[in-house]
Amino acid sequence: MGSLSVVEAVTVDVLVGWLSAFRDAVHEHGAYLTELDSAIGDADHGANLIRGMDAVMAAVASPPEATGDLLKKVGMTLVTSVGGASGPLYGTFFLRMATASGDATSLDGPALLAGLEAGLEGIVARGKAEAGDKTMYDALAPALAAFSSSLDGGASLADAARAAAGAAAAGRDATEPMLALKGRASYLGERSIGHIDPGAASSALLLDSLAGALS
């Protein structure tokens, strides 16, 4: 692939680029994520994801050939290194995406979407979250819907990922007036209103990183 060509096949290298961009993003926005979490949680979301993504990048320094093997390594590393609820949630996301991706050495648009959707289903199964509960679901679900409809409309992978990132950011912002119904924030009841959900914020970074890696 020439350096100027558009990404149309998501290889292991592209996935590693995504993860690397996400690692950089959680470093850059770690203080912001922790600040959001200090308002409605236990003030560790930024630090947890920084630790987790640093561990992930160390674990994939010599990446396996199959996308599924890579994503499984990512999921297991997050599970063992993150600690907070985002460990099992992001861990489940990547583990389910790994199962969906299997032995494939590269993923086309529909295969990438299928993997992301399997990951989101995993988060739903794990966290029992629904739309409007003020969780990462509220960023991820509209993002994947946008990704899907963009691909259906004939958009390139890069454009579909950009649409997904935009929808994730809008979904993140929409969590601000919501009442938290899941996780530690739900203990706060109405005091959770008026704060952006930290998990939705980090999920928006994950999608923004994907758009960057596919552009």
């Binding site: 947890n48 630790r51 297991m76 599970v79 063992t80 290194s81 993150v82 600690g83 907070g84 460990g87 099992p88 861990g91």
Partner: peptide, 12 residues
């Protein structure tokens, strides 16, 4: 515990 602090680890 997880990663040396408060937390839980599914592999543990």
């Amino acid at each position: 515990g997880a990663a040396g602090g408060f937390g839980t680890d599914a592999t543990e």
